[in-house]
Design a protein around this nucleic acid. Structure first.
Lengths: 70, 70
DNA sequence: ACCTCATGTCAAAAATATTTGACATGAGGT
DNA sequence: ACCTCATGTCAAATATTTTTGACATGAGGT
């Protein structure tokens, strides 16, 4: 399987946004801090809607936050 | 929750790609035709990974296929 | 008329994402 | 030493996505 994998810049973006805690990001996105932690750690693929909301918090296009890489 | 909603250009892109059937797209993405039909109809928010794979089939960036709109 | 194909849709099951509640750790400040 | 905060992680429950299998419809071709 020529597998690509999902990576993200959430941790970096949180720190650039004044070291925003996972819990604060979760609250602004509408999910729990555990969900943010899991997504940030790449434990599973979030819902597209969830991904768009995370990008929205950082004021970035989705593809600046999540990457689909080899 | 969100006053924004997820829309997509899948149907248009399928037709531009030689009227590719939902079943063919599903096979290339690795999901069933019912899943493609449901996503195309906006019945639910796909996994981010699934969204990236669909965009990849059309050779487009994800944000050319899915939109997060008011 | 028939057949094939693409699509719509449905319900139940399976798989996956998300929540809830809990306990642990380390870093920083008092 | 203590406290607070951010994070890691875990298990069980819930919600959502996806699969499987089925039946229906309409369009196109023979």
């Amino acid at each position: 399987m020529a597998d690509r994998q999902l990576t993200n810049e959430i941790r970096t973006l949180r720190f650039l946004a004044g070291e925003m805690p996972q819990a604060d990001l979760g609250q602004r996105v509408g999910v729990t801090r555990q969900t943010i932690a899991a997504i940030e750690a790449g434990k599973y693929s979030p819902t597209l809607e969830c991904a768009f909301r995370i990008a929205e918090v950082f004021g970035k296009p989705l593809e600046d936050v999540f990457h689909w890489e080899r």
